[in-house]
């Protein structure tokens, strides 16, 4: 019985939402939908107000020194929680793969220890629902055709595999359409989108062409940053295809009275 964790029996797991800086500032609805979804699944998620950002924008641009105080803020905000949920494969990937680089750079063994302790408890949304909660059918209802773009950091850095598509397939009324060359990057790449804007757009236009070829109403992904890029291209083309975060879809429920279909 030595390794039996009684904490979960005595008191419920304390779960924090790391909303991500982009959702905080630009897509608060996605953050609200994560809260709504998790509460529906019985998780009383908290929002530690001290949080800011994972530091990835700085690290990926080469400004690792500048990311050190951001990492301190991150660790201070989330250290007391049993689990941290983030609606971003990219931010979760940054926590697991880059925070060690940042703390090494800081030359601060305590920060290194605290961030190494925290990193395994940070979960991307679909990982948290499928692996921690053990749920596939979240009780959602979304009567639309959907294409799913598996963003690179979710796919290759985290290896979330088919968790997001399993969750989507279990949504009532949702038709998931196959996206060709789905695993190809959308061309966003953080500051790449501005530093090499032409190349970023050229890659994105091929992604958009594949999305339009599915005939889907909605493109879903687990990262708002990639969706800002793809959605910006779709909107510029007046395509009529909406982009939605995975959380935005999973939070939808059948309205009282049954709804359409």
């Amino acid at each position: 019985m030595d390794d039996f964790d009684v904490r979960g029996l005595v008191q419920p797991m304390r779960v924090a939402l790391q909303v991500t800086c982009i959702n905080d500032a630009l897509y608060p609805d996605t953050g609200r939908n994560v809260v709504r979804l998790l509460r529906r699944l019985g998780v009383d998620v908290e929002f530690p107000a001290a949080q800011t950002c994972c530091g990835q924008p700085m690290v990926n641009t080469g400004y690792i020194n500048e990311a050190v105080p951001v990492l301190r803020t991150f660790v201070d905000a989330f250290a007391g929680y049993d689990a941290v949920v983030t609606p971003s494969g990219s931010c979760a990937g940054s926590v697991r793969h880059q925070h060690a680089i940042v703390s090494a750079r800081a030359g601060d063994p305590l920060l290194a220890e605290r961030s190494a302790d925290l990193a395994p408890r940070v979960f991307e949304l679909s990982e948290f629902i499928v692996d921690v909660l053990g749920v596939i059918d979240v009780g959602a209802w979304f009567p639309h055709t959907v294409a799913y773009h598996p963003t690179c950091h979710s796919l290759r850095m985290l290896g979330v595999g088919d968790r997001p598509t399993k969750l989507l397939e279990a949504v009532e009324g949702l038709t998931l359409l196959p996206l060709s060359e789905a695993e190809e990057c959308c061309g966003f790449g953080g500051t790449f989108a501005v530093k090499n804007a032409g190349t970023s757009v050229a890659i994105g236009e091929d992604k958009v062409r594949n999305v339009l070829a599915t005939g889907a109403d909605v493109l879903v992904a687990g990262d708002r940053s990639c969706l800002t890029h793809i959605g910006g291209l779709l909107d510029r083309q007046r395509s009529g295809v909406r982009v939605m975060h995975l959380a935005d879809v999973l939070a939808q429920t059948r309205p009282p009275g049954g709804g359409r279909r």
């Binding site: 690179c152 695993e183 990057c185 790449g189």
Partner: peptide, 8 residues
Amino acid sequence: YASTLCGA
């Protein structure tokens, strides 16, 4: 900087 860091 000539990369999206997609990992392919």
